[in-house]
Design a protein around this nucleic acid. Structure first.
Lengths: 197, 197
DNA sequence: TATGTTCCACAACAACTGTTGTGGAATAGG
DNA sequence: CCTATTCCACAACAGTTGTTGTGGAACATA
């Protein structure tokens, strides 16, 4: 059985993720990953014998990296907790949106590519499901902030949907990211979510 | 020069759009379109000599069909105009979201596929730009309704972004479309957009 | 050192791709 | 009926794909 060296595995999966973003799902082939990762032709095919496994590995990897990064981000956000809950939530989400749409833009492009491919590839859908779980678990702070701000239950999943949708529009949209525009967007999202009955 | 019979052209482009939705951009090949449209192998290659032209034709076609349909929808919506502007807008958007995410789901899947492919295919980006123009022109009624409801300028593009993002989440999300959830989503969007300063 | 096991580089396969060219059918003009 | 032009079905090309198999290197164990 192949696929044994964990370091190589992750490196190949990372290369696959990057390839997904810059070349699309269609550009993710065993040989293309080999070239991108500067390993001999055939290596990727040894670690991920089928294309399903290759794409699922990319999905798992992107979830793994995302989880690792968001844990530190949450810790930092939890550090400063004072006053105006809704305002803090707005600040947090606006900053999060901007960095997601700029610094991590290629990562989300890859995620969207995989998300669409998952429509016709059940194994990929399973791998991507973990990403949604992360997003939900990630919003414990959001729960508290909204509860403090007097929002009804059900406001959190609503906010998550609005946030995720806005991120897609920003990432795939034409223009550069305008922080002021993002700020207004988040204000509208939070206000709207709080007002829901 | 090929590509002459307009009816055949549209039929091939339609087949390309459907293929984009069910097989992804990567599945849209000359021969695959031939098979899907039940025409002899080689036909699509005669009408759209390069892959760029083929995908761009699919984008143009999806915009064309979308425009034709949305014009009748707008006419119907403009028919009943009375009272409570914001409430009417909410009704209109909620109904629009539901049909977009259910009846026209495959169309939007195709659009998202093409949108991502356009990131690395300038010709496609140009073809898709017309879709955004349609969406903006489509919102004259939205402008009026929001103005009547005392919303600030800039609320309309904000609402369009929220709407487009929510549609993506609904179309690519796992579960079926729940009309009540969509309703709450739209209420939050409209409330949020109106409150923006 | 001998041995068994893990890992990997490479070859080979059939199938599919985009693109281009060509010959003939269909059609229109006279 | 003849001719010229438009349209299209098909063949051929070199290249790439997923997948599988194989032989040997590297390694640990004894």
């Amino acid at each position: 059985m192949p696929r044994t060296n964990p370091r190589r595995r992750d490196a190949l999966a990372d290369a696959a993720v990057e390839l997904t973003a810059v070349a699309g799902v269609g550009g993710v082939t065993h040989r293309a990953v080999d070239r991108a990762a500067h390993v001999p032709i055939g290596t990727t095919a040894n670690y991920f014998p089928s294309r399903d496994e290759l794409l699922s590995a990319a999905a798992h990897r992107v979830a793994e990296v995302h989880l690792a990064e968001s844990m530190t981000a949450t810790a930092a956000a939890a550090a400063n907790q004072a006053g105006d809950a809704a305002g803090q939530l707005t600040d947090l989400l606006a900053a999060s949106l901007v960095t997601a749409a700029t610094t991590h833009r290629t990562r989300y492009l890859a995620i969207y590519e995989l998300q669409l491919e998952a429509q016709r590839r059940p194994a990929l859908a399973g791998a991507l499901a973990k990403l949604s779980e992360i997003a939900e678990a990630q919003t414990q702070a959001m729960h508290l902030a909204l509860r403090d701000a007097g929002a009804p239950p059900g406001a959190v999943p609503l906010l998550i949907t609005l946030y995720g949708g806005a991120l897609f529009m920003l990432v795939t949209g034409p223009g550069p990211i305008d922080a002021a525009v993002v700020r207004r967007l988040v204000e509208a999202m939070v206000t709207g979510a709080r007002s829901t009955g």
